[in-house]
C-alpha cells in the first residue's frame, strides 16, 4: 500500500491536470465536457477516500504554496525568461487597476506552485517596491482549506495577521505582516483554485485585453479576428470587402 501522503500529492497533481482539461473545454456541454465533469466527480471521490477534504490541497488541514509574486520592470523580458527559457505555461494574467499593475502567471510541469510576475504601470505600492528594491521577490501566497483555522494557528504562534478580507466568498484573504516573518510578505487565501484562462497570450495581456477582476482574469477586448480562411471557402462579398 502506497504512503497516504504520496497518494494525496499525486491526487492533487491529477486534480490540476483535470482542471486544465476542463478549462480548455470551456463551456463545452458535449460528451467531452460531460466526461470531464464525471472524471472530476470520480477524482473528487478518490481524494476524499484517501483522506483529503479538498483535492486541490494535498496538505489537508494545512496550507500549500500557490504562487510566488515577483516584481519586474520589463514584463515582456520577464515573460521570455519565465515562459520561453524556463518552460513555464502562461495560465493567467491581466491589468489590475486598483493596484496599478499588470501581471502574468506561469505554471511549471511537476510543480504545484506558480510564478506571478508583477509590473507596475502606475504609481502605487508595487511601483514603490520596484523603486526601493529594484524588483525581485515580493510576496508568497499560500492557500488554506480553512482560512479561519489557518489564521487561528498563525496568531496562536504569535504572528500578526493584517488586512483580513472576507467580502468575496470565493476569495477570502489575509496577510502576515513582514515584521513578524523576517521580511517576507505572506498572503493566506481560502479560495477556489484558478482554472487556466483559455486563449491568454503575453501579447494580449500587454495590449491590456485582459483585466484582473473579481479575483480572476477576464477578457475585456474581443479576440482579434481569426486568420483569413482559404479563399476558396470565402463568400465573394467578404473577399471583396477585404480588398
Amino acid at each position: 500500500m502506497a504512503d497516504a501522503g504520496e497518494l494525496r500529492a499525486a491526487t492533487a497533481d491529477a486534480w490540476r491536470a483535470v482542471e486544465r482539461i476542463r478549462a480548455h473545454l470551456g463551456d463545452d456541454r458535449g460528451v467531452l465536457g460531460v466526461l470531464g465533469e464525471r472524471i472530476a466527480g470520480l477524482l473528487g471521490e478518490f481524494a476524499w477516500e484517501v483522506g483529503m477534504l479538498d483535492p486541490a490541497d494535498p496538505g489537508g488541514p494545512g496550507t500549500r504554496l500557490d504562487h510566488v509574486g515577483i516584481v519586474v520592470r520589463d514584463l515582456r523580458a520577464a515573460a521570455t525568461l519565465y515562459g520561453d527559457l524556463l518552460g513555464g505555461t502562461l495560465v493567467a494574467g491581466g491589468g489590475h487597476a486598483g493596484m496599478g499593475i499588470r501581471s502574468l502567471h506561469y505554471s511549471y510541469a511537476g510543480a504545484g506552485a506558480k510564478v506571478e510576475l508583477l509590473q507596475p504601470v502606475r504609481p502605487g505600492p508595487v511601483a514603490r517596491f520596484l523603486e526601493a528594491r529594484g524588483g525581485g521577490l515580493h510576496h508568497l501566497t499560500f492557500f488554506a482549506a480553512d482560512l479561519t483555522a489557518a489564521l487561528d494557528g498563525l496568531t496562536g504562534a504569535g504572528l500578526t495577521v493584517v488586512d483580513v478580507d472576507r467580502r468575496a466568498p470565493e476569495w477570502q484573504e489575509a496577510y502576515l505582516s513582514p515584521r513578524g516573518t523576517q521580511g517576507c510578505l505572506i498572503q493566506v487565501v481560502q479560495g477556489a483554485d484558478l482554472a487556466p484562462a483559455a486563449g491568454i497570450t503575453v501579447d494580449s495581456v500587454l495590449r491590456d485585453e485582459w483585466e484582473w477582476r473579481d479575483h480572476r482574469p477576464r477578457r475585456v477586448t474581443a479576440a482579434p479576428p481569426n486568420p483569413p480562411a482559404p479563399a476558396a471557402t470565402e463568400a465573394p462579398a467578404a473577399t471583396e470587402a477585404r480588398r
Binding site: M1, A4, L7, E49, V50, G51, L53, G60, P61, A145, D146, A149
Partner: peptide, 20 residues
C-alpha cells in the same frame, strides 16, 4: 487509508469535514 487511521486521526478528519 481510512481503516489505517487511528481513532484520533479519524475523529480529526470527521471534525474538519463536519465544520467545513
Amino acid at each position: 487509508v481510512v481503516e489505517g487511521m487511528d481513532e484520533a486521526e479519524l475523529l480529526g478528519f470527521v471534525s474538519r469535514a463536519a465544520v467545513a
